[in-house]
């Protein structure tokens, strides 16, 4: 990109940044303009992204390059995709349930296999760590295991939280509150980091007040 293009781009970015920040004063038409532009460019960006990285290489190039059954079987997702567009026509809109059912089926299938393989088993393996004596690592491993079990028990509502279950649920809420506080602090610092980045852009790239 040429220097003039970059200069124009920097001013556009500066305007959009200030327009979004104007919401700190109150909701106003300039903020709303930037908000609507954000929705428009994001929708356009993701449509181009999906078309270029998914539909074009997998369907169109796949159909051009593959041979035999591998080529013709691509007509199935192509047809399902076109059927999805039947929502445009009220009389045939019900047909769009077929590709929706397909995507829901994929989601449900992955919901079982990917969740067990990707979440439950690795998390359990990483939790059940050895206790090798009286040292800080072992103590942390015990705290971690107790934290995971009591957190899960806190969300177990099939029995009233009384007696041993109530006691463990109370330990669970301690872990949950510490976790929420830590996550909050972590998120706030990440957002402040982004804020510093935007202020640096305004003061450095746009106004050249700082280097």
């Amino acid at each position: 990109m040429g220097s003039t293009t970059m200069l124009i781009g920097t001013w556009i970015a500066g305007f959009l940044t200030l327009a979004i920040f104007s919401f700190l004063y109150k909701d106003n038409p300039v903020y709303k303009l930037a908000e609507h532009i954000y929705v428009g460019v994001s929708a356009g960006y993701w449509l181009i992204y999906v078309a270029f990285f998914d539909v074009y290489p997998m369907l169109i190039q796949g159909f051009q390059n593959e041979t035999g059954i591998e080529k013709w079987i691509l007509l199935v997702p192509g047809a399902l995709g076109l059927i999805m567009l039947s929502r445009w026509f009220p009389k045939t809109a019900w047909l769009s349930r077929w590709p929706i059912a397909f995507t829901v089926g994929i989601g449900a299938g992955l919901g079982i296999t990917a969740n067990i393989q990707g979440y439950v088993m690795p998390q359990l393996q990483a939790t059940l760590l050895p206790v090798t004596g009286w040292n800080i690592v072992s103590l942390n491993n015990v705290i971690l295991t107790v934290g995971v079990i009591t957190t899960i028990l806190y969300f177990y509502f099939s029995k009233p939280h009384k007696g041993a279950l109530g006691w463990m649920a109370r330990v669970g809420i301690v872990f949950i509150m510490v976790s929420f506080g830590a996550s909050f602090g972590y998120t706030l610092m990440a957002r402040i980091s982004l804020l510093i980045g935007r202020l640096y852009f305004l003061l450095s790239d746009l106004l050249h007040v700082i280097d």
Partner: peptide, 20 residues
């Protein structure tokens, strides 16, 4: 590394079982 991870893990395991 310890209490935050423990609670996050507990919630994730619960959510994953719910998703299953």
């Amino acid at each position: 590394d310890v209490p935050q991870l423990a609670a996050k893990r507990g919630i994730q395991i619960g959510a994953a079982l719910g998703a299953v």
